[in-house]
Design a protein around this nucleic acid. Structure first.
Lengths: 110, 110
DNA sequence: GATGCATGCTTTGACAATCTAGGTATCGAC
DNA sequence: GTCGATACCTAGATTGTCAAAGCATGCATC
């Protein structure tokens, strides 16, 4: 069974979570779906990766969480980007760009 | 002291090493310098990261090593890309491209 | 009303890669 | 003879991710 879904690189998950929350409040399970959908099924975040990451991110104050009931009548924990989280997203995007650039430079060497 | 040198993402180091060896045989210390130089000082590989990585890569048969003396009269261990290593480099570059693409897709969402 | 599936959250343990920090040794310059 | 650059190696800690469980709910289907 060929796996074509790429494993995440360490450090990219936070950015992806923050980014998907920047589009609006969302609960954990929804974050996974949103990332999968936005990436055209290329990125698949495991639950066992997501929830610890969310906890970590919440501790750092980048997101705030609250329990709520959504339209389907089910309870879920909704996460929302904080001001600090938005700033952090920018930082992480910038350093991702820097890394991509640096790697591109190495790769283009002949 | 602000650090502007990015930490590597896990999984990228192998590619960088293989790439720098694809330009010609080189010893460990030289690999670090070559990566730093090619990336315009943006990437700084620690020795404590490089040597274990080289060992790992050699075990996998992607590089071959031999001790030799270079022009300065000093001994060093020279690494050379094998055929399998060249193939592996292609694979890793392809999956890096895929990841970049996937992340770009997520990021461009509004 | 039982069964199964998608949804939803959590925890555990293993694993892999990197970093920090230390060590050894040689060489040339001062 | 001391110092910095070169050159290699290792140990330990940390970190992030994953695989694999478990638990619960709602809904459809039989």
């Amino acid at each position: 069974m060929p796996k074509n879904k790429a494993d995440l690189l360490q450090g990219t998950l936070d950015m992806l979570i923050l980014k998907s929350l920047s589009l609006g409040e969302l609960h954990g399970y929804g974050i996974i779906q949103r990332i999968r959908q936005l990436s055209d099924e290329m990125l698949n975040v495991e639950q066992g990766s997501l929830y610890p990451a969310l906890y970590r991110i919440e501790q750092k104050g980048w997101v705030s969480a609250r329990w709520d009931v959504h339209e389907t009548g089910r309870e879920a924990k909704f996460y929302k980007l904080t001001r600090a989280g938005r700033k952090q997203l920018e930082t992480q995007e910038a350093s991702w760009d820097r890394l991509c650039l640096a790697i591109a430079k190495v790769r283009q060497a002949t």
